[in-house]
Amino acid sequence: MTTMRPSGENINQVWPFAHVGTKVTDWVNEFGAVAIFLFKSFFKVFRAKQMSSIVQQVYYVGARSAPVVMLVGLFTGMVLGIQLYHTLVKFGSAGVLGSAIALSLIRELGPVLTAIMITARAGSSMTTEIGIQRISEQIDALYTMRIDSLQYLVTPRIAASIISFPLLTAFFDIIGIIGGYLTGVVLLGLDAGTYFYRVRTSVEMADITGGFVKSVVFAIIVSTICCFQGYFTHMRKDGHGAKSVGLSTTSAVVLSCVLILISDFVVTCFLL
């Protein structure tokens, strides 16, 4: 975690408790900073002239991530098919394979894995792009031209993420279910009719909306953190220039993935 302290104080922590205290206040400060960053950027989406930049970002974040997401979805479904089949068959319940796969994907694996894949792809590039623009003074240049850098750089990315994540999750789910079909039915001999029947009957509206709610939450988390890390890369204490951009990108991706899993837990508790 970076310590965002622009005044450059040097704090020598000898006492372990003081150290813990500092860390906690640092985290709280950073959380506040991220929250402010998010609110400032998000509401600018309602200003004019945003459409074309949002569309561009949907291309980079959404459309370009689709092949990867679908590939991962396919293999996840296929693996689930094999693993679950072998386990369920022991209870004589191979017939519920469809339910098991569909529910695991739609409720959990779809939103989470999609979010993680997009973080790896588009999230890291958000951090790096904005980070490099920061260290080469391009963001300062925008300031001097009276162009709002948050509106120009960050808002389209957050908006595009909120649009893309659920759509990509839907792709992941469907292709995953097809993957399960490929292994469970085609490979391992389960009856196709049973499989799809189970899929249709066991999935409820609540599962689907829950999954999409998670996607949107993940979208906001990932895009905000990645843009934030890039935007403030110049305030890092542990590196300068290119190195700080690299460190910011690492932080952004790791932090995003961790928060995806934590918020997954929180949202799941809320929904159930």
Binding site: Q133, E137, D140, A141, T144, M145, Y152
Partner: peptide
């Protein structure tokens, strides 16, 4: 005001044309 940076601070992902057009387009 208008400011011209020592290191130019050009937008390296945009063409020259768009670099110069940006302030007009956005403001």
């Amino acid at each position: 005001f208008s400011y011209c940076f020592q290191n130019n601070a050009l937008f390296d992902s945009l063409t020259i044309f768009h670099n110069i057009a940006l302030p007009l387009q956005q403001t």
